[in-house]
């Protein structure tokens, strides 16, 4: 039994096939990259995994539980957290309160939730913003808040949806370090990302999709040299020294 497995999953919206027969397996402790052109179905896959969409066919398994068809909140409680590509800060709540909402997943009361939240804010280096309203944050901090809040629910698997988009280089480097720390803390990661530097640096395995179908899967260097991936997504072969 694998840690996380998607078996031949398909999702249609009316006549549009968003995802067709995609299968992959993620091992515990891995950083699993998901790449593909815009509209290739990456976010749809995340919505399927996290329960916001129900698949038309196929199944999703996590730690021995079949999770497709379950509600998003049930899937979170089973240990799968997610962030949103278009960030969803709880704007009129403070950063601390945002994270506390997540922390209540395992906390018995407000005191414990606050302790977990502060710990997670420290871990993600966002503690200096704890008293700010989430609506006041810059995009970089908002992206980080998404991760912090999701981590506060103490997941075993976290889905990161383009958490690097819109970040400057310094922020990108910070986020790469953060993702390393998350992995080291024992959380498995599936990451959707367009910035190839990130994918190449941190992923153990990469899965490339186009038009909702699998193009290639394997180590990052193998996938970026796959001719179809180059043609459909990268445009030119990935230069490791660029």
């Amino acid at each position: 039994m694998s840690f996380f497995e998607i078996k031949k999953i398909s999702k249609r919206f009316g006549g549009v096939k968003a995802v067709t027969d995609v299968s992959f397996t993620v091992q515990e402790g891995e950083i699993f990259g998901l790449i593909g052109p815009n509209g290739s179905g990456k976010t749809t896959l995340f919505n399927l995994i996290s329960g916001f969409y129900k698949p038309n066919a196929g199944s999703i398994h996590f730690q021995g539980n079949r999770i497709d068809g379950k509600e998003p909140h049930q899937i979170n409680r089973l240990g799968v957290a997610r962030t949103f590509q278009v960030v969803k800060p709880l704007k009129r709540m403070t950063v601390l309160d945002n994270v506390m909402v997540g922390a209540f997943a395992t906390a018995t009361g407000p005191k414990e939730a606050k302790a977990i939240a502060c710990e997670t804010l420290d871990f993600c280096r966002l503690d200096h913003r704890r008293k700010n309203l989430a609506g006041e944050l810059t995009i970089g901090d908002r992206k980080r808040l998404e991760i912090t809040r999701a981590l506060a629910t103490k997941p075993a698997l976290i889905l990161l949806d383009e958490t690097f988009a819109g970040l400057n280089h310094a922020e990108q480097d910070d986020s790469i370090k953060l993702i390393g720390r998350i992995r080291d803390s024992g959380v498995t990661i599936i990451i959707v990302e367009h910035i190839m530097k990130v994918i190449m640096n941190i992923s153990d395995k990469v899965h490339a999709i186009n038009f909702g179908e699998t193009m290639a899967e394997g180590t990052p260097s193998k996938v970026v040299s796959h001719p179809e991936v180059v043609r459909a997504y990268l445009g030119e072969p990935y230069d490791h020294h660029a």
């Binding site: 998003p72 709880l90 906390a107 939730a113 999701a150 629910t153």
Partner: peptide
């Protein structure tokens, strides 16, 4: 707990749902 959950539902129902809130 409920109070925090109520506010999170007001602010963004999908975010609340993704954080494990029914």
């Amino acid at each position: 707990r409920s109070g925090y959950y109520f506010l999170s539902i007001r602010e963004d129902q999908d975010a609340a749902e993704s954080l494990g809130i029914d």
